[in-house]
């Protein structure tokens, strides 16, 4: 493998292009995905290679093209539907949940819906409350969906390819602030439903996903200087969540800190902690803790925005508390 760093946005684009070359039924639709190359340039170049039929600019009609995508999937195509941001997918959430996630079950398995809904999720920089929400727990809540939220370029590419080839509906949550980040591609095998231990440690397990994995890694580096050894688990898939990897790590470190960019209330971190409580209770040496966004909407002002979201410092403080270093 080439050790050259590939930005996440390029990895995602390459994943779509590879799938489109292999399978004629794969197509991409969304706002500005074709001629403009995507608002965040994730689909750049696809229209040039695959043309009008397979890379389709839609009107500003999330509910309409969300449903059109699901209808196309039910009738034999493999749509990749891009939402300019998952904040706009709220207009289409009925189709993601009621149409895509439920058709197989309601038809006794007769209807299959191989669709991918993808786009940036979570906070950006200075975009205020309506462009900054993390919807991970909303989608991960629902049986019938698979929900993925990768961190680096390699897992993003491999998981997007796996999602497009998957027979079930997938919500693929990207992160705008990660698109420009570069990571080397590797030979690691990446699968839907499998988390990865991306840093080994012995004192505390940090469980996270998407951009927060980078925060967890930075916190782990800082803590190493203090003599604390952190293990970092990148969840990658949020439904089905990889309980086995979480539990086996916590059984080794006896402590867990769950980190997410979204709110604490009914969140993914809460779910991770419930899993640990139910299945690894006896191995815990300290109460499981969370670092999440504060219980407020994301404010615009820079100083307030910084207060409202998880930071490496907040993570380090909780790690110190858990390991009795403060």
């Amino acid at each position: 493998m080439n050790s050259e760093k590939v930005p996440v946005r390029v990895a995602l684009r390459d994943a779509m292009a590879e799938c489109m070359r292999e399978d004629e039924t794969v197509f991409v639709m969304g706002e500005d995905v074709a001629h403009y190359g995507g608002s965040y340039k994730v689909t750049e170049g696809l229209h040039k290679e695959f043309g009008d039929k397979r890379v389709i600019d839609t009107p500003i009609s999330e509910m309409g093209f969300g449903g059109i995508g699901v209808g196309a999937a039910l009738s034999g195509l493999r749509p990749v539907v891009e939402f300019m941001t998952f904040n706009f997918a709220m207009q289409a959430i009925d189709h993601i949940i009621n149409s895509a996630a439920k058709s197989s079950y309601m038809s006794g398995g007769e209807a299959v819906c191989p669709i991918v809904f993808r786009g940036p999720n979570g906070m950006a920089a200075g975009t205020g409350a309506q462009h900054s929400q993390c919807f991970a727990s909303w989608y991960a809540h629902c049986p019938g969906l698979k929900v993925i939220s990768p961190y680096d370029s390699h897992s993003a590419k491999e998981l997007l390819k796996a999602s497009i080839k998957d027979p079930d509906p997938v919500v693929f949550l990207e992160q705008e602030l990660m698109y420009g980040e570069g990571f080397a591609l590797t030979n690691e095998k990446v699968e839907i439903g499998k988390a990865a231990v991306i840093r080994k440690g012995t004192d505390v397990t940090l469980v996270s996903f998407s951009r927060m994995v980078g925060f967890a890694l930075k916190a782990a580096e800082e803590c190493e200087k203090l003599g604390i050894s952190c293990e970092v688990v990148d969840l990658r898939t949020l439904r089905p969540i990889d309980e086995k990897t979480i539990i086996s790590s916590v059984k080794k470190t006896n402590r867990v800190l769950a980190i997410e960019e979204g709110w604490a209330y009914s969140g993914i971190a809460s779910e991770v902690i419930s899993i640990v409580n139910e299945k690894a209770w006896d191995s815990l040496d300290a109460e499981p803790l969370r670092v999440t966004a504060e219980n407020t909407l994301l404010p615009y002002a820079k100083n307030l925005e910084e207060l409202a979201v998880p930071t490496v410092e907040k993570i380090i403080n909780k790690i110190k508390y858990l390991t009795n270093k403060i």
Partner: peptide
């Protein structure tokens, strides 16, 4: 909601 789904089947 099925009006969009049906339009997608037409697609």
């Amino acid at each position: 909601a099925w009006t969009s789904l049906g339009t997608g089947i037409g697609f």
